[in-house]
Simulated scan of single mutants.
Amino acid sequence: MANGARQAAWEFFGAELKRRRENAGFTQAALGARVFVSGGYIGQFEQAIRKPQLDVAQRIDEILQTEGFFERTWRKLIDDARYADYFAEVVELERTATKICEFAPALVPGLLQTAEYTRAVTLASNPFVTEEYIQEKVAARVERAQVLADATGPVYWVILHEHVVRIPVGGGAEMAAQLDHIAELARQRRALVQVLPTSAGAYPLMGRMVTLFEFEDAPPTAYTEAVYSGSLLDDPALVKRVQGAYDLLRAAALPPKASLALIESAAEDHRRCAGTT
């Protein structure tokens, strides 16, 4: 679904929510209290500024007695078979965010991955899948990355642990190409890239991938991922703590210029190991 059509569909979702809420005699605050969000959030859902999580859509159906209408609509708009269930909402947030900040302790983040890197990661986790499955995952990852090419896309700030640039995912030549891609995005100022060196030792959010989203007309949100699971964090106090930890990571990381030099040097090391220099 194209972004314009998707937004129109969310506007329909919001209009239906407002209509059915008012018909049921609820104010935004009253409905919010029943489904465990603020009245302001209900207003943002109705204006298509923010998208509800699945459990909120399900509770709205229960309170407004809409026989699953909002859950079915949510699934149609957000669920995408190309992504894990826990990650489909994150893809939607990437499309609407004004700023994205990521910390990657082990893997190149999806928005920066080349097709070859994605292929290698997919095969490592799924050694018995079909070629069709792999191509589908690669195509979905490439499509996600287009958000950084869009002139109206988000500001993108990423911190990579040095391990990410040193491990030759897919082989030396493929990893060199991946690092060249990251370096080019940094040089084009489409991404602000920092590297957290191994010499930094212990660091905040030790070993945890985290993404912070900011929006034009909605509160910030954080996302963190574990083994085959992920969590969106909406609680303002918790998001603020994650933002504070990210600020500490920025302070410990190399400056952008030094980070770019390290990435370029690592790319040359991978090329030498692959015998392609």
Rank of each mutant, 00 (worst) to 15 (best):
R272I: 08
V121L: 15
R59T: 03
L31D: 06
E214C: 00
W74M: 02
V147I: 15
A145P: 01
A104H: 09
L54H: 09
Q243T: 13
H161N: 14
D80I: 01
D80F: 02
L260I: 08
E16K: 12
T66K: 09
D85A: 13
Y156H: 02
A252V: 00
S231Y: 10
D150E: 13
G39W: 04
I159C: 01
T130K: 07
S125V: 03
I167F: 14
C101R: 11
A15H: 08
Q28S: 12
R241W: 08
I159K: 01
Y246V: 08
T152H: 13
P204M: 07
A274V: 09
R119M: 05
G32Y: 09
G4P: 14
I60A: 03
T224V: 09
R250H: 09
K257L: 09
Q44R: 15
L238F: 10
V138Q: 06
N3K: 12
R50I: 00
P204F: 09
A33Y: 02
G32Q: 08
G275E: 11
V165I: 15
Q7I: 11
D61M: 06
R95V: 01
D79I: 00
P204A: 06
K257F: 04
K18E: 13
A252R: 12
R241P: 00
G153W: 02
E94N: 08
V165M: 09
I182V: 15
H270K: 11
A183I: 04
I42R: 02
L107H: 08
G170M: 03
L248K: 15
E116Y: 01
E116I: 00
R95H: 10
A15F: 08
M206Q: 12
V239I: 09
Q243W: 05
V147M: 03
I159D: 02
Y203N: 07
G230H: 06
R19M: 07
F12T: 12
P255V: 02
L185T: 03
W10Y: 06
R75F: 03
Y133P: 00
Q243H: 10
Y203W: 03
